[in-house]
Design a protein around this nucleic acid. Sequence first.
DNA 1: TCGCTGATCATCT
DNA 2: GATGATCAGCGAA
Length: 178
Amino acid sequence: MAVRLTEVEAYTGDGSDPAAHSHRGPTPRAAIMFGPPGRLYVYFSYGVHWCANVVVGPDGTGSAVLLRAGEVVVGEDVARSRRPAARSARDLARGPARLTQTLAIGPGDRDADLLDPASTVRLHRGPAPDAVSVGPRVGISLATELPWRFWETGAPTVSVFRAGGKPRRSTAGQDGRS
DNA sequence: TCGCTGATCATCT
DNA sequence: GATGATCAGCGAA
């Protein structure tokens, strides 16, 4: 089956991005981010979900692109069987954990080479979208000022913006969430 | 459609 | 011992 990506976020390990898993160096979890580009970085989120990233940049950079959303273009029946909770086609891969569920990506796909035709998960280049929008990343509480989320303008599968979890005391931003 | 809450655990303090 | 790069289900508007 295949999904066309409609929304992604960038994270860098060069020290300027405290929201990145690689920000504290190559810990066991983030080690794959520091490896060669084109590999899959998979992490377990909130004790419930798996999310997928594509490692990018020169070896050792610790940078990756989080796959946030897409639309199913091949194999919608398979996607539906994997995500019975989806109420509409656009919910099949709308959000990073839903995307991995639809693609059946999990811990077994860690460090998969996305450019190797023999891999179970692969990344292909598709036609460029008509327009791309840029804005703040979703669901993080650090470095919210970096406009490192990119999505296809107008795509119905794009995540609704949410500010990060609980406010982090260091930065000035004090919203009323508790 | 919006807002809230529970689930559940690897990672880091 | 606290905290998330989240989602689904619920009730209310």
